[in-house]
Simulated assay, not measured.
Amino acid sequence: MNNVAGLGSSGSQRAMDMRMKIQYINEKNQGRGVIMATGTPLSNSMVELYVMQLYLQERRLHEKGIYHFDAWASVFGEVTSSLELAPEGTGYRMRTRFNKFINLPELIHLFKEVADIILPDMLDIKRPELKDGKYKIVVSEASDYVKERMQEMVKRAEAIHRGAVDPKDDNMLRITGEARLLGTDPRLLDSHAPVDTDSKLNKAVENIYQEYVQSQEQKGTQIVFSDIGTPGPGKPFTVYDYLKHELIAKGIPEEEICFIHDAKTDEQRDRMFSDVRAGRKRIIIGSTEKLGVGTNIQTRMVAAHHIDCPWKPSDIERAPVKAS
């Protein structure tokens, strides 16, 4: 399937390595011997279900006459075309995507031959409720500087679509990455960019501080997620350092703020999480990868802040708490 959004065409060496290992184990054990466990088998694309079936029931797919992805897609999926907002945000264009399941009862029946499907409402697990029952979206208006830089990116994107630019010099992936940085804070692109007092980061600082003050009595803790602007040597501006600096300027003790990136070993990580659960560390800042799945620090948690939205919905769904 070519020119269809939602399908990765580059392949993955890690996934192929996994497939060969599974094939070897299955050959040695008559198709048995591999156990997988995940809370989100489909986290970003419909294709992931095919990959899971290819790993766990390749022989069964062959019995059904399915020997490659296109055959699976023609039986269980459908390609649709619809209008979507253009990446540069200046209009709409038709986009073809592989995004709809068909013959779903048959697909589920086939998948259940190798999967035990357990939904959240089937488990007696206590989960914190969202404040006011919903996520809180904090809106920050773009400054004049940000708008000017965005117009430059729009012109670059138009030139790319016209084929007037060598992909080695500029491409949509590069523009998308720069726009993501710009939308968080223009200083991530240019450390000399003007400071906007109404920016996303400054609003985050204010919200974090207000939650800190309001939960002072019970020593409430907060998680701040940011996948960009992570700390590191030689970086003139980072989201983490700026948040920490501004929070300290508001009166929060430095020893109550920590970065997950400072925990280099499992022992240091466990000690940091223990401090958060005890309220000795009240604000922990980290990326979705390092602070997402498997993090048990919600004992005193009063809020979780996402500075930038993760690429996959599962990254928000699997966050350690459902709070905002």
Score class of each variant (00 low, 15 high):
I223V: 11
E148K: 13
H245L: 08
Y55W: 11
I160F: 05
A159L: 08
R60W: 01
Y67I: 04
V165G: 04
S82Q: 12
M1P: 08
R95W: 06
A159W: 01
E148A: 11
E206Y: 00
S10Y: 13
S226E: 04
K264P: 02
S10V: 09
F111V: 02
Q13F: 00
I248A: 00
P87F: 11
L182K: 08
E58G: 09
L56K: 10
K281A: 13
G33M: 00
G33L: 01
A304Q: 09
I252A: 10
E211W: 06
L130N: 08
D116W: 13
V139M: 10
E78C: 05
V213L: 13
A278F: 01
I25T: 10
K126P: 03
P194I: 03
G91A: 05
A323V: 15
D196P: 04
E63F: 03
M16C: 05
H245V: 00
K244S: 06
D185V: 04
N171W: 01
E256W: 00
P41L: 03
L181Y: 09
R32P: 01
Y212S: 08
D227N: 12
D121W: 06
Y135G: 14
M20T: 07
P41F: 03
P233V: 14
R280S: 11
I228D: 05
I117S: 03
R19S: 10
L119K: 10
D190K: 05
W311N: 12
R180W: 06
F101I: 01
Y50C: 01
V165I: 13
A249V: 05
N2G: 14
S10Q: 15
I125T: 11
N44Y: 02
A71G: 11
P186Q: 02
G177N: 12
R269K: 14
S81L: 01
I22L: 04
E289P: 01
R277M: 09
Q57H: 04
Y240G: 00
G8P: 03
T176W: 10
L173E: 14
K200W: 07
L85W: 13
I22R: 00
Y67V: 05
D275T: 05
I257T: 09
T265E: 02
H245R: 15
R180N: 12
A115T: 11
I35V: 14
E255C: 09
S74D: 14
V75G: 04
D166P: 03
N99W: 07
I307L: 08
R97T: 15
D70P: 01
I285G: 07
T299I: 06
K126H: 12
V293N: 06
I175V: 09
D17L: 12
Q268S: 10
I160D: 02
V138I: 15
P320M: 01
K21Y: 02
E27D: 12
Y67E: 07
K322N: 10
N2K: 14
T184V: 15
Q222P: 06
Q53F: 00
L123A: 12
G294S: 06
F69N: 07
S82I: 03
G232H: 11
S314G: 12
S191E: 14
A71Q: 14
P167S: 00
A71D: 12
S324K: 12
E141F: 00
G294F: 05
